[in-house]
Simulated assay, not measured.
Amino acid sequence: MDIDVFASARAGGWQRLEQLAGTRRLTGAQADELVRLYRQGATHLSLLRTNAPDPELVSRLSVILVKARSRIASPHDLTWSQVLSFFTRTIPAALYRVRWWSVITAVLGVLVAVSAGWWTASHPALLASVVPPTEQREIAESAFASYYSEYPSASFSAMVWTNNAFVAALCVATGITGIYPAKVMFDNALNVGVMGAVMHVQNADWVFWSLILPHGLLELSCVFVAGAAGMRLAWAWLVPGHRTRRQSLAEEGRTTIVVVVALTIALFISGLIEGFVTGSQLDPWLKIGIGGLAFVGFWVVVFGLGRRAVRIGTDPGLNAEEQASLIPVAG
């Protein structure tokens, strides 16, 4: 196939297709023409991918077809199978895509929390300058535990969920800066470490762990993943690889949107645990067990279901049309 002759002979149809796809209001005849040209364009794209995989031409035609498809497809044709696929494939694939960023962020966060807790607990004067001794006693004796029981369970769950989901979304939304997510991770880890030091110095370690672990395992996992997704977005912009910066940012942006949806669901579960389990009269080991199951379930979705979804070709950063138009590139 002579690629130049092929493209030149069909350039008029592609331009017309792009024009119709960008037209706000179409007549009946124009809508029919749009569908006809879209089908022709899809055939042309298939021929190009098979016989002359020119990256620039394939990319150009793919963009035109995506625009046309968005005009043709009905916005109300969502099916239950698509919903199921989103939850069982797209969400796990998106979380899997940021898995190592999440693990590294979690490890660094835990190191900061442990270091802050150990250092402040080992230096009473420093801890007293951060939290006065009278406040330390009040926190250990009543304030820390009462925080989880002073509000009705349903209201407290909703309040916690709203706040945490907002923080997670903000980490992703400001991820392009690469600064805010890192600051949130650091501040969060620092606060946990200092609070742990306060409870340790006041001989209230068991109170601290029995109230933190039930919901904190899942909640902190979500915070770490949110920060990781935000920083990965910044990395995609700085180091796009073989993609253009615009393409790299667009693909990672779609992935992070899915991550936000996933974290909103996970934080809802964490909020329910914090509101109905953490401050309840259940046996502390049972509460920790419930939190542990939620924690394990979350990471099974990330590494187990996510790995399977990616292996069967799910890419949350691309739609079906874009996935079909991918061609191998060197490097």
Results as ranks from 00 to 15, higher is better:
I3L: 15
V5F: 11
W14F: 09
T23P: 03
R24V: 12
R24K: 12
R24Y: 08
L26H: 06
T27S: 15
G28A: 10
A29D: 15
Q30K: 07
D32R: 15
T43E: 15
L47R: 13
R49Q: 14
N51F: 15
L57T: 11
R60E: 07
L61N: 01
S62A: 15
V63G: 05
V66G: 04
K67C: 04
R71P: 08
S74R: 12
D77Y: 05
L78E: 10
W80L: 14
W80F: 12
V83D: 12
F87H: 15
T90C: 00
A93H: 00
L95Q: 02
V98M: 04
R99P: 04
R99H: 07
W100C: 01
G109K: 02
V112A: 02
A113L: 06
S115F: 11
G117K: 02
G117T: 02
G117H: 02
G117E: 02
W118S: 12
A121D: 11
A128Y: 12
P133S: 14
T134Q: 15
R137P: 03
R137D: 06
A140L: 01
S142N: 12
A145D: 13
S146R: 10
E150Y: 14
S155T: 12
F156L: 08
V160M: 11
T162P: 07
T162D: 09
N163L: 13
A165W: 09
L170R: 09
I179P: 01
Y180R: 10
P181C: 04
V184T: 03
F186P: 05
N191T: 14
N191D: 11
A197L: 03
M199I: 10
A204I: 00
A204S: 04
V207R: 12
S210F: 11
G216L: 04
S221A: 13
G230P: 04
R232C: 05
G241M: 03
S248A: 14
S248C: 09
L249P: 02
T255M: 10
T255F: 05
V258C: 06
V259I: 12
V260H: 02
L263Y: 04
A266S: 04
L267S: 00
S270V: 03
G275N: 00
G279P: 05
S280T: 07
L282F: 14
P284Q: 10
P284H: 10
G291I: 10
G291F: 07
L293S: 09
L293N: 07
F298D: 00
V300L: 14
F303S: 01
R307D: 12
V310I: 06
V310K: 02
I312Q: 06
P316R: 00
L318G: 04
E321W: 06
E322Q: 14
I327R: 11
